[in-house]
């Protein structure tokens, strides 16, 4: 098996077997994180640049750890201390960095399509670490990996995605990813936070009529973060109202399948989109997701830079 692209921009670009290839590779890399000496020489002599135009704790740390465990030379550019604040354009920043011959860029940007734009400029591999409201492919892969560790077959899986779907790059990637593997997706949100069109390349995607319908017999529940700012733009009345009507509670959770897996991409607003007690009682897979995130990012860098080696 191999992957025939230099970049990972979008889950839309991946086939079901591509997704499985990334996940299977990640499972191998996960073993490294469990060893006493958590380092392999796989990417020795390779340079990876992380550019985060948006604040991030989890994703950025996860990528940096992945790079260190693969022995890559990596650096992270904090935008607040870069020429970007002096008014340099995205294109110029990238062309300058490109001249220093990195092998891969990991990019997080608040604008949708940023990773795609950069991938056209550079010969280096580009990993999309989240672009605007568009996609967050490595999050999707780590979600799939987390579920795949517990569920063999995705064909009959009911996956509920609940929350601010309209603004969620995680939701967009997950909808494509899980449905490509054959899962049925149930979306639930205040209707002001649903996408206008729910056609995802032939995937079985449904809009649930209620929170209860969404979680009933669900095998996987992915809760999304609601941002407080959404109230200022009329998407919701208030956080209090959101908490009252759109929070995953233990009562709702009891309607799901007995072996339901609860996922959340973080950061969590406890007792807004999910009851704190569900997390406290270890009923979520949040930390498993974070653990698998490192493995997935190792796999991505290995696969993409490996492709460069063969074709570059």
């Amino acid at each position: 098996m191999s992957f025939q692209k230099k970049d990972l921009i979008s889950i839309k670009d991946l086939s079901a077997s591509d997704i499985n290839y990334f996940v299977e590779t990640a499972k191998e890399f996960k073993k490294i994180s469990l060893k006493d000496i958590k380092k392999v020489p796989t990417l020795r002599g390779k340079t990876v640049v992380n550019i985060f135009y948006e604040p991030s704790t989890r994703t950025r740390t996860s990528f940096e750890i992945a790079q260190k465990r693969l022995s890559a030379d990596s650096l992270s550019i904090a935008i607040s201390q870069s020429s970007v604040v002096k008014g340099e354009s995205l294109k110029d920043t990238l062309l300058n960095l490109e001249a220093m011959k990195p092998d891969a860029f990991v990019i997080r940007h608040s604008e949708s399509g940023a990773a795609h734009f950069i991938s056209k400029i550079t010969k280096a591999s580009v990993v999309n670490a989240g672009d605007g409201i568009n996609e967050h492919p490595t999050q999707c892969l780590l979600d799939i990996m987390t579920v795949a560790e517990a569920k063999k077959d995705f064909k009959s899986l009911k996956v509920a995605i609940i929350g601010d779907i309209y603004h969620s790059r995680v939701a967009r990637s997950d909808i494509y990813g899980f449905s490509k593997l054959g899962a049925e997706i149930y979306l639930y949100a205040p209707h002001s936070l649903l996408p206008r069109i729910t056609e995802y390349g032939g995937g079985k995607v449904f809009i649930a009529k209620s929170m209860e319908e969404a979680v009933k017999n669900a095998d996987v529940i992915i809760m999304l973060r609601i941002q407080k700012e959404r109230a200022s733009y009329y998407f919701i009345p208030s956080i209090e109202e959101y908490r009252n009507f759109f929070r995953l509670t233990p009562e709702l959770l009891s309607k799901a399948d007995k072996k339901v897996m609860v996922l959340h991409p973080g950061p969590v607003n406890r007792d807004v989109e999910i009851s704190g007690s569900i997390i406290n009682e270890n009923k979520t897979h949040i930390f498993k997701q974070v653990e698998n995130g490192v493995a997935v990012r190792m796999a991505c860098l290995y696969i993409l830079i490996g492709y460069q080696k063969l074709n570059g």
């Binding site: 209707h191 002001s192 733009y233 009329y234 009507f245």
Partner: peptide, 16 residues
């Protein structure tokens, strides 16, 4: 008056 507010009100109310 604000069309965005009216639109989202229609959508949000539709949820209920």
């Amino acid at each position: 008056e604000d069309s965005a507010l009216m639109g989202r009100a229609l959508l949000y109310a539709d949820t209920f």
